[in-house]
């Protein structure tokens, strides 16, 4: 079993070395492609970025990125190229616009609302009287049960 696992690991790492070798054209370009593809969503497997996905479409799109980087296009132009085709959904970080206001502002609105509720609750709690005062009737009841009140000891050593 262990040997089998080892074999799998070795072959997988060999595979990745192989992939690296292919992509090892120009470190700076590769770095940019890497950064760009981490910002982009693979539409086939939506929880993966283009950088992580091995879906065929992701490979094609990475190839597109490579060509466009090589053609000297700016990052914004390349991202725009993909947004035009696949919509804002390809971007992991959605742009700030009318349809996404709730997405961006919502958490802060919730936070503010929670803070308001907290303040209101604390204020209400402070207004509640700390202990109801004993009426003369309560006092009489206490004296009947416990005996007449004893003046508190002066030195304060007793509880």
């Amino acid at each position: 079993m262990r040997i089998l696992l080892l074999a799998v690991f070795v072959s997988v790492s060999l595979l990745s070395i192989n992939v690296k070798a292919i992509e090892n054209a120009n470190p700076q370009t590769e770095q940019r492609i890497r950064q760009l593809s981490e910002k982009l969503r693979c539409l086939v497997c939506q929880n993966q970025s283009l950088a992580d996905s091995n879906a065929e479409l992701a490979q094609d799109l990475r190839q597109q990125l490579r060509e466009q980087v090589a053609a000297g296009r700016s990052d914004d132009a390349i991202l725009d190229y993909l947004v035009q085709r696949y919509g804002d959904f390809v971007l992991y970080e959605p742009p700030f616009k009318a349809t996404t206001v709730l997405l961006w502002i919502g958490p802060f609105v919730l936070l503010a609302a929670a803070a308001l509720v907290l303040v209101a609750t604390l204020r209400r709690r402070r207004r509640v009287p700390e202990e109801p005062a004993l009426g003369p009737e309560d006092r009489r009841l206490v004296e009947r049960v416990l005996g007449p009140a004893v003046p508190p000891e002066r030195d304060g050593s007793a509880r």
Binding site: L43, V44, E56, L57, D60, L61, Q64, R85, Y86, G87
Partner: peptide, 13 residues
Amino acid sequence: ADGRIGIDYGVYG
């Protein structure tokens, strides 16, 4: 054949 036009049309599935 290479899926180039597919990308222009935003094909993913």
